[in-house]
Structures are given as structure tokens and as C-alpha cells.
Design a protein around this nucleic acid. Structure first.
Length: 568
RNA sequence: CGGGGCGUAGCGCAGCCCGGUUAGCGCGCCUGCCUUGGGAGCAGGAGGUCGCGAGUUCGAAUCUCGCCGCCCCGACCA
């Protein structure tokens, strides 16, 4: 393809709206243009990349028996009402204004289930894997970070339909493996985390994550053994507070002005591990006092799952006083004004010699024995794992806590949607059962943006051959003046094409500097620099974009050399 | 939805406080000359509802009010 003939508007300056590298480079390299907040047009080169990513996804989905659908974006609202998701999605769901009863599909569980209900009636019809690669609409309250969080985006969604739990497990595993292939083939460095099952009510769920400072999720990762978990469920290897020999009876002491654990540590010379921090939450309308060791931070997601709670929030100041008899800073498990459920972090199991508030402002109490002085109704892992703590897999490595971008999510749904919509089948015994479903998503734009985040420098992108818009960039230098350069460039372009390589040939009447910079910006894997001074010696220069490595080779050997570099 | 910032040529910005020539600058664009291995040079030129609407004023890019849009932080994110 001749560059002079394609629409490829590069930008020397960065539009102000772009903040993160992928967004800046996608705009500068002429891949996308923004139409509104969270709304992007794909320009020809950007769309070529998207199509390559979608094709990788398609191949891997087909390989596990997936069947591609094309589903409507316009959905009757009734079906969404039947599953309760009009309310659940709230403002995120786009409603059509001038046509009653239509919404824009933010995902397609309902529609898939609808078709399953129409036609799947027997266990003999199962299993099925149905997928689509299409535009989804979500009225994000705050679109951000370029294409990473948009109001309209492309998603591969697949749904597994199974007759048995074992069948679901198998479908889920197929997806897990397909997803690994998809990200690996795309060239992404990723990791997989177990996710909290959240409000969807399903069972297992895993997220495919890409580490990035711009990610909205936080994960703990171990570089040694590969452990990775969403911070909501991450744990680390810390030993519990050991019992100490002195086990005197409890004793109040005055701690004027001490309101934090650090005040106790610094002002009263109490070791951090002998401090028990108390926090009070209102969990499903009931007060719960939670004890954490030292300065450990309570992890609300863990609390929620430990108590199987629906709603929880920290108690307000007035409630604290009402429940405990004291204000924040002097609260503790002993001598509560009102009885409350008391739970504690695992690290405090059997602890003694502990210091905590005594529910009287300005006083604390020492020598608390968790087995003697009050009743802990249960112990749980409730603490937020921290960077630097040891990996809980016994590998001895320090955990890192990183931000990450979710590029995929696989989820065992169960029968939520099939039950709600009456999608049932008859099993071998003639018994009617709801179809057991799984749901599996991949954000296409996120793969592209994450790839750029991981593969760029200050000059531009470097694509992997698998998703590059073209494989080879031939830069014909001064071809207007140098007939021989033009001839060699064109011949090479033709030979590349004949060899099955996708070529972009920069035949523009631009100065070499402009071509070099545009080529580095777009970042095709291999640049062929055709300049007269090498061509006179029968040679041509190749540059590998990612490494900057250059080699001068015989013109005749260029194609082989390029194929070798690309390994295709 | 709360807080902050911004909106002037295709892009990046100045001008606005303190109202007053013909609204500037850089890049890009067009024409010509020249140049050609890392975003050249010279000369000439085109391009503007100063986000929109009201108001104040002899006079508004500039002051006031309302609205819209975009970006960032927070809340939210099946």
C-alpha cells in the first residue's frame, strides 16, 4: 500500500485531552479520533489493528468450538426488566428516548438466553458456546483514559450453555485457555487473578489483568511464583501475634490525646504488634466491632464476604459514641456500652498482652487477652495485603501491589439468567432444569491500548507482527530525485507483497526526517530504509523498531532477512 | 453527581485581570524557489460564528448571568 494514497494523519503535537501514553500515541499515529467523551472513530490504520486483534480472538474462540453470532444493539427493555437489570444497571443503561421500550445493549446475557430459550430444549442440544464481537453501549459516568473506558466500545462476549456443573467447568476452562492464547498471541504481558464474585451471584470468576499505572484495579502480585490476586482478596504470609509469657490482668491507663495507633506506638512506647485497632461498621443495619492488628487496614471486600453482608459502611461519629460510649481513638472490645458482634483478623487469634481503647475517651487498656477478656465471635482474614509482605505461597518473595487494567473476565454465571428468563432443558431423566451458563468478555480496545502502554518509547509505538497494521514499512528516501531508489523501493514493496508480507510503502514527497519520524511513531515492526547511498552498493538498511537495531543487507537478501526478523 | 481546570484558525498556545486599531504566535496547509539519512531554508498566501445565548456598555475575546462541551480528581464501574 502506498502511503501517499492512504488516510494516515499523524500529529506532531499532542492534543491536550490525551493524558496517558496509549491515548496520546493513538491520536498522534493517526489510529483514532475522538468524537465525544468516551466516543472514538477508528481511522483506517487503527481499524486494521482492531481487525487483527478481533481475528486472533475469533480464531481462538472458533478453536474451542465457539460459534459467532451477530446480535442487535437495540434491545426491547422488557427482557432487561425480566432479569432485574434495568434497575441494577441504572444510569449505565442507555435508553432510547423517542421510541418507547428500547435500550442500547450494554452486554448480551439476556439476548443469548432469549435465543437459548427459543431453541435449546434438551440436554442433547448442549453444550454450546455462543459468541459475538460487537459494539456495546454503556453510559459511563466518567469516560477516561482514551479508549480504555468509553461509552461505546467493542467487546468479545461469549456465553457457554451447559447441562451440568461439570460441563460449565469444562467450558470455563476452555475459555481460560483460549484467553491465555489470545493475549499471548497479541503480545501482551498479562496475569490472571481470582476475582471476588461480587453482586452477580455466580461462583468462580477470574480476571485477566495488565499491569499499568493507569489501571483502575489494584492487585497483589508475586514475581517469583506467579501468585496474583485482586487486592480485594489478596493475602500475604504473616504470622499471627504470638502469646507472650506475662499475662497480667487488664489495666486501664490514661492516654490523653492519643487517637491513633501511631500515637500509642510513639507516645506510650507500645510495640505495634501489641496494639489492637478497633473499627466499627454498620453491617446490614447491625453494629459490628472489628479488631485489626496494629496499623493493619481493614479490607471492606473481605469483611463483606466474611459476614456475607449485603450492605456495609463505617459507623458515623454519633453512632460510635452511642454504641461504644467513646469517640474514635478510644474504642475497644472490652467494656462496650452496647453489646455488638465482635470479629477479629486472623493475626489476632489467641492474642494476649494487647492494648486497645477502653471505650472511655482518653483511656486505653493493656494486657487484654483475646481468650479471656471478651468473646470474639469469629476470626477471618480481614486485612489489606501490603506491598513488601511475603507471598503466601511459601515462596519467600516480597509481594508487589500494582495497578492493573482488566482486559478480560471469565465468569461462571450459573442459572441466574436462564432461571429469570425460563431457558430450560430436559435432562436424561426428563426433568426440567435451567441451562447452566458462563459469561466471558474481552475488551478489544483495551488489548490495543494496553499493548501500546507496554510497547512504546518517546518516539512512538512498536507493534508485534501479529497485530501491526502492516508488517513492513519501506521508506523511500528522496525518490523524487533518485530514480534508482524509487525503483528499488517499488520492487521491494512488490516482492514483500508476493512473499505474503503486508507492506506500507512511504512514497510521499517528504524529507527523510519526516519519514523516519512518522515510521517510528506508527511503529511497524521492520523499517526498510531505501537510500541512494546504500543502494549504490547494492544494499539496503533494515531497522527493527522495537530494539532500534539496524543492519545493512544485500538488496537480494532483504526479503529473507525481513521474514527472519518477523518470524513469519 | 460533588470538586477543580479548560474552550481563541486543522493542532499547540498568547491576548482576558485592567473593555477601545485590522485578534496574534508556533506548527500544519497552499504557491514558487531551494534543499534532501532524523520533523530544513527563503519569499508570498489562504484560513477565525474568540463554545452557544442573553445582558451591561458608545464599544465585549475581555465584565455579568445562563447553557453546552472537553479534561482531571472523587463517587460509581454487571
Amino acid at each position: 500500500m502506498k502511503q501517499s494514497q492512504i488516510f494516515f494523519p499523524t500529529l506532531k503535537e499532542v492534543p491536550t485531552e490525551a493524558q496517558i501514553p496509549s491515548h496520546k500515541l493513538m491520536l498522534r499515529a493517526g489510529l483514532v479520533r475522538q468524537l465525544g467523551a468516551g466516543i472514538f472513530s477508528y481511522l483506517p490504520l487503527g481499524y486494521r489493528i482492531a481487525k487483527k486483534v478481533m481475528n486472533i480472538i475469533r480464531e481462538e474462540m472458533d478453536a474451542i468450538g465457539g460459534q459467532e453470532f451477530h446480535l442487535p444493539a437495540l434491545n426491547p427493555i422488557e427482557i432487561w426488566e425480566q432479569t432485574g437489570r434495568v434497575e441494577a444497571m441504572g444510569d449505565v443503561l442507555f435508553h432510547i428516548k423517542n421510541r418507547e421500550g428500547l435500550v442500547l445493549a450494554p452486554t448480551h446475557e439476556e439476548i443469548i438466553t432469549f435465543h437459548a430459550r427459543q431453541h435449546i430444549h434438551s440436554y442433547r442440544d448442549l453444550p454450546q458456546i455462543w459468541y459475538q464481537i460487537q459494539t456495546k453501549f454503556r453510559n459511563e459516568p466518567r469516560p477516561k483514559s482514551g479508549v480504555l473506558r468509553g461509552r461505546q466500545f467493542t467487546m468479545k462476549d461469549s456465553y457457554s450453555l451447559d447441562a451440568t456443573r461439570e460441563g460449565l467447568d469444562a467450558s470455563y476452562e476452555k475459555h481460560a485457555s483460549a484467553y491465555r492464547n489470545i493475549y499471548s498471541r497479541s503480545g501482551l504481558k498479562f496475569f490472571v487473578v481470582g476475582a471476588s464474585s461480587g453482586a452477580m451471584g455466580g461462583s468462580a470468576s477470574q480476571e485477566f489483568m495488565v499491569e499499568s499505572p493507569y489501571g483502575e484495579d489494584t492487585c497483589a502480585v508475586c514475581d517469583s511464583c506467579g501468585y496474583a490476586a485482586n487486592i480485594e482478596v489478596a493475602s500475604s504470609a504473616l504470622s499471627a501475634a504470638e502469646r507472650i509469657a506475662d499475662n497480667n490482668s487488664t489495666e486501664e491507663f490514661a492516654t490523653p490525646g492519643a487517637r491513633s495507633i501511631n500515637d500509642l506506638i510513639n507516645g506510650y512506647n507500645i510495640p505495634e504488634e501489641r496494639c489492637a485497632k478497633s473499627v466499627v461498621y454498620i453491617v446490614d443495619s447491625k453494629p459490628v466491632l472489628i479488631l485489626m492488628r496494629g496499623n493493619d487496614e481493614l479490607n471492606e471486600a473481605k469483611l463483606q464476604s466474611a459476614l456475607k453482608a449485603v450492605n456495609l459502611r463505617p459507623a458515623e461519629a454519633a453512632e460510635l459514641l452511642e454504641i461504644t460510649g467513646a469517640n474514635a481513638g478510644s474504642i475497644g472490645p472490652v467494656g462496650l456500652k452496647t453489646p455488638a458482634l465482635i470479629i477479629a483478623d486472623n493475626l489476632l487469634r489467641d492474642a494476649n498482652g494487647m492494648v486497645s481503647g477502653t471505650n472511655r475517651d482518653g483511656f486505653h487498656i493493656r494486657n487484654i487477652d483475646f481468650n479471656r477478656d471478651f468473646t470474639v465471635s469469629s476470626f477471618h482474614d480481614l486485612r489489606m495485603a501490603r506491598a513488601g509482605e511475603q507471598c503466601s505461597n511459601d515462596c519467600g518473595n516480597a509481594l508487589r501491589v500494582v495497578n492493573a487494567i482488566e482486559v478480560g473476565h471469565i465468569f461462571k454465571l450459573g442459572t441466574k439468567y436462564s432461571s429469570a428468563l425460563g431457558a430450560t432443558f430436559l435432562d436424561e431423566n426428563g426433568t426440567e432444569n435451567p441451562i447452566i451458563m458462563g459469561s466471558y468478555g474481552i475488551g478489544v480496545e483495551r488489548i490495543i491500548a494496553c499493548f501500546i502502554e507496554q510497547n512504546h518509547d518517546d518516539k512512538g509505538i512498536f507493534w508485534s507482527p501479529a497485530i501491526a497494521p502492516y508488517h513492513v514499512h519501506i521508506l523511500g528516501l528522496n525518490i523524487k530525485k533518485s530514480e534508482i531508489t524509487r525503483e528499488v523501493s517499488e520492487k521491494l514493496a512488490q516482492q514483500c507483497a508476493e512473499a505474503g508480507l503486508e507492506v506500507l510503502y512511504d512514497d510521499r514527497d517528504e524529507s527523510p526526517g519526516v519519514k523516519f519520524n512518522d515510521a517510528d511513531l506508527l511503529g511497524l515492526p521492520v523499517q526498510v530504509i531505501a537510500g541512494e547511498r546504500n543502494i549504490k552498493d547494492g544494499k539496503i538498511e533494515l531497522k527493527i523498531r522495537a530494539t532500534g537495531e539496524r543492519k545493512t543487507v544485500e538488496i537480494d537478501k532483504a526479503i529473507d532477512e525481513i521474514r527472519d526478523i518477523l518470524r513469519i
